[in-house]
Write a protein that binds this DNA or RNA. Structure first.
Lengths: 146, 146
DNA sequence: GTCATTATATCGCAATACGATATATCAAGT
DNA sequence: ACTTGATATATCGTATTGCGATATAATGAC
């Protein structure tokens, strides 16, 4: 349980981050080219990819995006203004706002998701390598010592 | 090469993002608790994990962090002010600034990296599952058709 | 030595998430 | 049904941070 870390550990951690950053960067750029700020794209995906019995709401979206509820309120406000999301107050609980994607959002998200799939398939092997390399690579190389 | 995507595809993409976000969130929180803004932690890791013949510089750091060089300038400025990085002008090329971690940075980074390793090892199986699930999961389930 | 290029730095700006706070609605207990 | 506490969303002001435009300094090619 020591804090010892080899140069190789730091290098692997840094490379992992670099790979993740490239993905995020690709994603943000792709979204931006489609006319969507990165977080708005993420919100659309979270809404579209949500599988649950009850409808998507502001609070649920906040949970999935790991942002504060009031931040989700602002984000959804922007999405509604831009015509990507329909927000209606839930008749079953008037505190809640149900969220649905518009056709415009479905179209944009379909195209974006397709190129994301391609990019992910390209990145995955490298990423999996990095992750498995970090798996049980305990300090001082004591792998099967004798 | 169609844009068709199943509900399951969207769900998997959304889950992948959720997993990545949780990692980023964990990382940022851990850094913050150690007194470091997230990007500053990333910068320290990029400097520490860099393997190359020439020393780390502002421009190299910008490349590894995927930020504009002038943004790296500002970031390094903050790191120097906070006592995490020593910046010296490179005698071999006086335009360049070489960057080195201080002992304070090494200490903070060691602790942070140790808990990151733990978290990554915890997250990796889930992440690898999601990635492999997206690998060749072409639309309409045509896996080994006959 | 001149000039284009490279490396870093500065300034003003825009985006976005947060804290603090407010309002509306629901649910439980009586 | 009325009060109370909790839940869901919204608003406002603020802080962080990255970028574009621009500036300065050093290098290298000719």
């Amino acid at each position: 349980m020591s804090d010892f870390l080899s140069d190789a550990d730091y290098e692997a951690l840094a490379n992992l981050r670099f790979t993740l950053r490239r993905f995020m960067d690709f994603s943000t750029s792709a979204a931006q080219e489609a006319g969507l700020p990165g977080q708005q794209h993420q919100a659309l995906l979270a809404i579209r990819g949500y599988r649950g019995d009850d409808p998507m709401t502001i609070g649920l979206l906040a949970e999935r995006l790991l942002i504060a509820p009031h931040t989700a309120t602002e984000l959804v406000g922007r999405l509604v203004s831009a015509g990507y999301v329909a927000r209606r107050s839930d008749p079953k609980d008037k505190r809640r706002q149900t969220l649905e994607l518009t056709v415009k959002a479905e179209d944009a998200l379909r195209r974006l998701s397709a190129i994301h799939l391609t990019e992910i398939r390209d990145m995955a092997p490298r990423l999996i390598d990095l992750l498995t390399g970090l798996q049980d690579d305990e300090p001082q190389g004591r792998k099967v010592p004798a």
